[in-house]
Amino acid sequence: MANFLEAVLGQYNNWAFIILLMIGIYAMIAKNNLLKKVIGMAIFQSAIILFYVSVSLKKGATIPIIAHGHGHDHGAVAHAIDAASYANPLPHVLMLTAIVVGVATLGVALAIVQKVNRVYGTIEEDEILEKIKE
């Protein structure tokens, strides 16, 4: 039991993302309401975004912006950069991209839900299936 607790606490960040991921995928599969499915998708995306941001972390490192980098002597600063003292910028860039795609897909998903509601008068999945069969 102590071992298990140690394992959980040592990797509490990963546990948090995986639990969020499970909540998201459960909502996407099991929920009957289309809006709740869309919310599940958003939770799923946030879990992955959080995972990437945590990958970019380095112990003792600061944000990925060079301190005092905008003086006139660019060249003097450039060769004194230690890669371990700045957080990894690459996951930040990728997740900036993913957040924007997330907004775009969320917008399209909401539009589709609205259209479904306009055509079938409901956003409950089983009621929509019944109306399609009629």
Binding site: S56, P64, I65, I66, N88, P89, L90, V93, L96
Partner: peptide, 25 residues
């Protein structure tokens, strides 16, 4: 860690020299 070594090290060490932008992102 593997994520922080190969490519991202290159960006951190060279982007200021090559683009004069202090913000790596």
């Amino acid at each position: 860690s593997p994520a922080s070594t190969h490519l991202s090290r290159y960006y951190i060490e060279n982007s200021m020299e090559q683009t004069s932008v202090p913000n790596f992102v």
